[in-house]
Design a protein around this nucleic acid. Sequence first.
DNA 1: TCTGGGGTCCTAGGACCC
DNA 2: TCTGGGGTCCTAGGACCC
Length: 419
Amino acid sequence: MFALADCNNFFVSCERVFRPDLEGRPVIVLSRNDGCAIARSNEAKALGIKMGDPLFKIRHIVDRYNVAIFSSNMSLYADFSRRIRSILRESAPQIEVYSIDEAFLDLRGMECDFDAMAKALSRRCQRLTGIPVSVGVAPTKTLAKIAAELCKHYPKLYGGCYMHRPEDIEKVLGRLAIDEVWGIGRKHAPRLKAMGITTAKAFTELSEEWLRRNMGITGLRTWRELRGIPAIDFEHLAHSKQSICNSRSFSSEIYSREELKEQVAKFAAMTAEKLREQHSRCSSLTVFAATNRFQDDAVQQFGNVVIPFPEPTSSTLHIVRAARNAIDDIYASGFGYKKAGVIATDIVPVEGVSVSMFNNAEDQRHRRLMQAIDSINRNDDRSRIVVASQGLNDVKAYSRHRSPRYTTSWDELPEVIVK
DNA sequence: TCTGGGGTCCTAGGACCC
DNA sequence: TCTGGGGTCCTAGGACCC
């Protein structure tokens, strides 16, 4: 058996921990720049606010129903995520962290009452962190996802955990819309519906041959998982990333070449830092910059340059220089750039990098320099040491409704006033 | 005025090889 | 009218996820 522990409306729940007055009120959390709704309380969902709705398009709902809005406060959410994970680790020999608010638990080989264990786990998370967590238990990961979802919809009925019993699975799948299934996305769902396949159960009755031909190996895996045959591996080891992307939309368009270079240099520096954090290097870097894609009356530009490195690198100096140079190939004056970013690819572990005959001395110097910079910048919200060519200002962004970093910043601890 | 920021895996087709 | 029969590797783009 596998379990999936999934935090309910995670970002909203984090905000409510320190704002219990928001219980029962519609609450949303916005993306960067206060752009879109990316987390919604049940009350906000009931008002018809959808995932990814731009704030300006739902303004009328927000005003009319007094919806509480928050800018995203990632330091807060990351800290809660860490706390939840440490609780989950106590409950199962292996966990697979799937996202900031979800983790699978490997229950294979464990002998206990899974239902009782999962209920206790949900209660424990709630009590120790204040975050409501739904736990689904089932013989495959896809079925565990469905179980957790059920439990989220009927919290009172299931009390934090739903476990699939073999005799119930068919009934549950018969009532589950095909587009709710993990692995069936916005392309395949309409196609299946047009064929009359509207439920998960109907999907499991398709032939293996049809799946293979029309939805490839991934569709087949989902099909198997729904039929109770594990087809998606449990990944207990967190592996290093194969690509690292840092990109941002700007709160207002950038017209100057130098300003664009500075922004991209910041993204490059962040990327280099992440590479070093996972002990790897990259052999190529993609740099892109684009105008506002929503402005359809204006001429658009999307520039995209790939820079190969002679040897794999994680040096901020190399990566920043490459990114700034790439802007010279992309930039055209007169365009307002709204978004830019860099992507590190061809990532290799640092141990596997062969030593260069020619640049060895420079490599050593950079490595020691980066170690020194990282040790100074570590545990700090913003970097204290930066490359001069990335400028001294932060990437500009709106964040008008950010709550305090209650748990990670000494200056923002909550105050309790006793009268 | 205002529209997020990350990732993964798979597949088809092209380039190249014998 | 006629045009072999295999392979491998790489890349771009698609589909999916949070």
